[in-house]
Design a protein around this nucleic acid. Structure first.
Lengths: 220, 220
DNA sequence: TTTTATTTTTAGGTAAATCTAAAAATTATT
DNA sequence: AATAATTTTTAGATTTACCTAAAAATAAAA
């Protein structure tokens, strides 16, 4: 059984490991808003518990057990987000902090039943995949909006930025999950992208385009 | 803002204060499965924060702020219990421990929306009243089943014992919330009570009868 | 390949919530 | 009222998760 804090470390390491193989102390510290010295302390503890592999000065990797624990927390977090949006009518930019607390509630039964109550959702309100109770993710075929060419069509299925500012911005533009889009133009000058929606045309910066995930439904 | 632990102390003191005016250190310790010395430490802290009034060796009472905080936790606990039973199909004897964790999630918005989602329930699955967001309880007129006379009718509206064993026992007998009952006999010998339900007749011990609350709908 | 910069760790300390054991106050009993 | 029993508090430690400041290791630059 892990403490609330240990769980948060595992989750952070898990997310950072999606980008780099060996996760660095400073990266963890920054992510968790704490100091590198504190991270070192905790890493040692997690290593003693067999949740991470750790070589001094070389960063950490999750062990099998550590990874499974982390995935379980991610599962809880995302299921609660679905609950908050689908059942309690929260906006997609309002759910993160509360889910951050709810993810630590320790009851397997609770999560199984919540999953069922929500209809076994495959993705959270930001399009992030929800692992099943065995920790398996449904394979998904995403492409970044920025990589599409003029004329390409697709459906918005995820975002890689969860800040409230970003999500509110998308909401205002009408770029929400499930929306069908087509690239109508890409500006050479600043790389901004012109997008055709069913009812209107919007322009987004290159920076925004980087963080939108599209499930492509064919060229042209 | 209180810690998880502080909240548990306030809640315990609140419940104990329903029976005695001045709550004793030992009583708190027993209830919280901790040692009296630890309780004294925490009481001092709560007194410093203005949440309890404390005179050495004389026990504690909640201040207005402390009481409101406690009621808020009770509200959260009971709303989550309703959620677990009504939405996730937990049994009434399975919800306490999980609600014990959920009650500490800090988000006013969450609870308001949960309350609405559940249809502003007035009582939890054990019949305990749920305070509204201003901390006010709906007045309820309960009488203990043990106090009824032969021939009296009523509706089961609460229990004063939340142990799983007790609740499972009632469940097996068909004595669940909302059931209409009539007292058909009271045994002189051991005080056990014979109860008529719509479809059957059951016998309960005096001890069980003490912990069932009835909203009486008139004599005979 | 030194020197410099960055990253990481160690050493020593703090605050929260516990504990045990002993002392002090209160309450009950003779 | 004196003694015994109970309750409560104090004193001093422990554990967890932090911290700062300084030392050590690694990586980057001259």
């Amino acid at each position: 059984m892990q403490s609330y804090t240990e769980e948060n470390y595992l989750k952070t390491i898990y997310h950072l490991a999606e980008k780099t193989i060996n996760v660095q102390t400073n990266a963890i510290a920054e992510q968790m808003q704490t100091k590198p010295a504190s991270v070192t302390d905790m890493i040692k503890k997690l290593a003693d518990k067999g949740l991470v592999d750790y070589i001094k000065y070389q960063g950490v990797t999750l062990t099998e057990i550590g990874k499974n624990t982390a995935i379980d927390i991610v599962r809880k977090h995302r299921l609660w987000e679905v609950f908050l949006v689908d059942k309690l009518n929260f906006k997609w930019d309002e759910v993160h902090d509360v889910a951050e607390e709810l993810e630590h509630i320790k009851s397997i039964e609770l999560i199984e039943r919540l999953d069922e109550f929500l209809g076994f959702p495959k993705a959270d309100p930001h399009g992030d995949p929800i692992p099943d109770k065995n920790g398996r993710f449904a394979k998904t075929q995403f492409i970044k909006l920025i990589e599409l060419k003029i004329g390409d069509r697709g459906t918005i299925t995820g975002v890689t930025q969860h800040s409230s500012a970003f999500l509110k911005h998308l909401e205002k533009l009408g770029l929400t999950l499930g929306k069908q889009i087509q690239i109508s133009d890409v500006t050479d000058f600043d790389g901004s992208v012109e997008i055709r929606l069913s009812d209107k045309q919007v322009n987004i910066s290159r920076e925004v385009a980087k963080h939108i995930l599209i499930s492509s439904n064919g060229k042209n």
